[in-house]
Simulated scan of single mutants.
Amino acid sequence: MRDSNLPGPDLLKTVLEPLLEDFQYWFSRSRKFLETEQLSFMSEQEQSDLLERIKQAQQELNIAKMLFTATDAQVGIDMATLMPWHQLVQECWSVAMRFRSQQADGHEQDSK
C-alpha cells in the first residue's frame, strides 16, 4: 500500500519535470556564457570554479532526470539535492546581471 503522505507520480510529473527542465536550461545557458565570456569582475580561477560547479550540477541533474524517467516518475528528488542547484542558478543570475550592468555602463561611457 502506498504512503498517502507521498506525492503521486502525476504530481511529481507535473511539478518536478518542469523544474528539472528549468534547471537544465539555466545550467546550459550559464555554462555557455562562462565558456564564451571573460568576466572582468571575476578572476580566471573564480570563473573556472563556477563553471566546474555548473558542470558538476549538470551531471547530477542528468542522473536525476534519468532516474525520474526510468522509474516513470515514481522517484522524487530530495530538497537537499534541489537547494544547491537553486542556489547555483541564483549565483549564475547574479553574475549575468553584473555582467550586463557593466556592459550597459560601458555603452554609456562610450556615448559620452
Results as ranks from 00 to 15, higher is better:
Leu51Phe: 00
Val75Ser: 10
Trp93Gln: 11
Gln102Pro: 02
Arg100Val: 07
Glu44Ala: 02
Arg2Ile: 12
Thr81Glu: 13
Ser30Leu: 05
His107Thr: 12
Met1Ile: 07
Gly106Asp: 13
Met1Val: 03
Ser43Thr: 15
Leu20Ala: 03
Met79Ile: 15
Phe68Trp: 03
Arg29Pro: 00
Asp10Val: 08
Leu39Asp: 07
Gln45Ser: 03
Trp85Ile: 09
Leu82Cys: 01
His107Met: 15
Arg29Asn: 09
Leu16Ser: 05
Phe23Ala: 10
Arg100His: 11
Ile77Trp: 01
Gln102Leu: 14
Lys65Leu: 14
Ser4Val: 10
Gln109Val: 08
Gln56Thr: 14
Asp22Arg: 09
Thr14Trp: 08
Gln38Gly: 02
Lys32Ala: 11
Gly76Glu: 04
Arg98Val: 13
Thr14Gln: 08
Arg98Asn: 15
Gln59Glu: 07
Leu61Val: 06
Asn5Leu: 12
Phe68Asp: 09
Tyr25Met: 08
Met1Thr: 09
Ile54Glu: 05
Gly76Phe: 05
Asp10Gly: 12
Gly8Asn: 12
Gln58Lys: 07
Glu60Gln: 14
Phe41Ser: 02
Gln45Ala: 13
Phe33Thr: 00
Pro9Ala: 02
Pro84Cys: 06
Thr14Tyr: 04
Ser101Ala: 07
Ala96Phe: 12
Arg100Trp: 15
Glu21Lys: 11
Gly106Trp: 00
Gln24Ile: 06
Leu20Tyr: 01
Gln103Val: 15
Ala104Pro: 04
Gln58His: 00
Pro7Gln: 02
Arg2Asp: 03
Ala80Pro: 00
Leu12Asp: 02
Phe27Glu: 06
Glu52Gln: 12
Leu20Trp: 04
Gln38Thr: 15
Glu44Trp: 05
Ala80Arg: 13
Glu91Phe: 01
Leu61His: 09
Pro7Leu: 07
Met42Cys: 02
Phe99Pro: 06
Phe68Thr: 06
Arg53Cys: 09
Asp105Gln: 13
Gln103Ile: 13
Phe99Asp: 04
Glu108Met: 05
Asp110Asn: 04
Phe23Glu: 06
Gln103Gly: 06
Trp85His: 15
Leu6Val: 05
Gln102Asn: 12
Lys32Val: 10
Ala70Arg: 13
Glu108Ser: 08
Gln58Asn: 06
Val75His: 08
Glu17Leu: 14
Gln59Trp: 09
Lys55Asn: 14
Leu11Cys: 03
Ala73Glu: 07
Leu82Asp: 06
Met97Gly: 03
Asn5Gly: 09
His107Asn: 12
